[in-house]
Design a protein around this nucleic acid. Structure first.
Length: 440
DNA sequence: GTCTGCGGGGATA
DNA sequence: TATCCCCGCAGAC
């Protein structure tokens, strides 16, 4: 293929992959059978990053890196969090560490006797979903096979930040908490500028103003195995697709939204106005081993939480739960809210299975009752939410993405035209979020 | 301590 | 033979 003309069809195993000049937006939560081409400077792609817990798998091909999904760490009792969602933590990539995770008590205070266990991924014909990475001089080719049949694990950043901060220790004061936040924010904004806003900017033109996964949980102070953060911004990106055709409309493009919408001037923390990508979910900050039963001021829409805050008196309580609940409840009243449980947007369980080899029954994440929780009365079904979200984002994505459509990579990638715009927007969003919480 | 890439090796179709 | 997975090692963080 000549340069500039992307081929609609290629396989990671092809002897020669096409040379392209137009690239896809990095997708952290690729699901379904997806092919993407990233620019060589894409930091996430170079790191073979993924929101899913992917472990290296030897395919005896030094030119193609293969990774397989480890699934998700769930509670053996499939208990529910106060907001109705489930526990789904990120399994450690390291076998040793992962073994240590298993059997740990469920972090959910509402859980009675549950233990963490790995729900393996069987989304690719009974095998784990696999990711393939292939580096060429001009691009990084990515191909995913299979659709995850399990919820998304917590973002990689959550566990990493926990380690970094030693968040397993008890945090007894809000001052200390905020100090940590400030330190983290400072670290993010100054020390590692290239690790900010993971895929939010999606700018590959100027190398790497991107945030790796490791920074996604920049405000998560969850204790070990206690992170129930469900703030993954990717929730707005993967709610369709598991087949080739569908994948072409995967809304990884969500991140492009701000490029055409006016940057919100709000300085207050309003989840409903923030792009899901940049939301500083409450539990990220208030996820503590020790309850903050203080009087820490919260945003107006989160102030009232009598029933849940009562739980803070429990030794094992986690205030972030109540905070999250309240926050989510408040956000639910907004039509523009994008704060639903990420599980609702995981796409694997309700999609057609693409399997080259044999049909494999696609299991639901939680077959007992799926994972539709009546958390939000304003939403009757995940489909409705998806539609809403898709409507909101698709418009944006349709712009400047003609070329992607042209060669079947319709993931809404940033264009050179609006990339900088988006970057600025997200940076502003990030700063606003930090400022909002600093006011606490 | 954990992540990541690499590579050996066994099992299976 | 191809493809799958498990496992261990080493370097990096």
């Amino acid at each position: 293929m000549s340069e500039g003309h992307a081929t609609p069809e290629w396989d990671i195993n092809d002897a020669v992959v096409p040379r392209v000049t137009h690239f896809d937006t990095f997708g952290e939560w690729c699901d379904g059978h997806v092919r993407r081409v990233y620019p060589p400077g894409c930091e996430e792609a170079r790191r073979h990053a993924s929101g899913w817990a992917m472990r290296n798998t030897n395919n005896h091909n030094v030119h193609i890196l293969k990774k397989s999904c480890l699934g998700v760490l769930v509670c053996s009792t499939r208990c529910r969090l106060p907001d109705g969602s489930r526990v789904h933590l990120r399994p450690a990539i390291c076998d040793k560490a992962r073994k240590k995770q298993q059997g740990k008590p469920c972090p959910n205070r509402l859980c009675n006797g549950g233990r963490l266990e790995v729900q393996p991924c069987r989304g690719h014909c009974g095998y784990p979903v696999t990711h393939f990475w292939r580096h060429t001089e001009h691009a990084i080719f990515f191909q995913a096979k299979g659709s995850h049949d399990h919820p998304k694990p917590e973002a990689k950043g959550a566990s990493e930040v926990r380690r970094t901060l030693g968040a397993g220790r008890r945090v007894r004061g809000l001052a200390l908490l905020l100090a940590r936040e400030a330190a983290i924010a400072d670290k993010i904004l100054n020390v590692k500028p290239d690790k900010q806003m993971p895929q939010k900017t999606n700018i590959h033109l100027q190398p790497p103003p991107l945030i790796p996964d490791s920074q996604r949980g920049l405000t998560c102070t969850c204790g070990p195995f206690e992170c129930t953060c469900r703030w993954r911004p990717e929730t707005n990106e993967a709610f369709t697709s598991s087949t080739w055709t569908q994948s072409e409309h995967q809304p990884y493009n969500s991140y492009v939204t701000p490029s055409v919408s006016a940057p919100p001037p709000a300085q207050s923390y309003d989840p409903s106005t923030l792009p899901a990508d940049d939301i500083f979910h409450p539990e990220e900050i208030f996820q503590l081993d020790q309850p903050i039963r203080l009087d820490f001021p919260m945003e107006e829409n989160t102030l009232e939480s009598p029933p849940t805050f009562a739980d803070l008196n429990s030794e094992n309580s986690r205030p972030e739960d109540s905070y999250w609940f309240e926050w989510q409840r408040a956000a639910g009243g907004s039509e523009s809210s994008e704060t639903s449980s990420p599980e609702l947007f995981s796409n694997g369980y309700q999609q057609m299975e693409y399997c080259e080899q044999q049909p494999y029954p696609h299991q639901q994440f939680y077959p007992d009752e799926a994972q539709y929780y009546q958390i939000d009365n304003t939403r009757e079904s995940p489909v409705e939410m998806e539609d809403q979200r898709f409507y909101r984002y698709s418009q944006d994505c349709s712009q400047g993405n003609v070329e992607m459509h042209g060669w079947n990579y319709t993931d809404c990638a940033f264009t050179q035209h609006n990339a900088q715009e988006c970057k600025q927007y997200y940076e502003a969003q990030h700063a606003q979020s930090v400022n909002a919480f600093s006011l606490l």
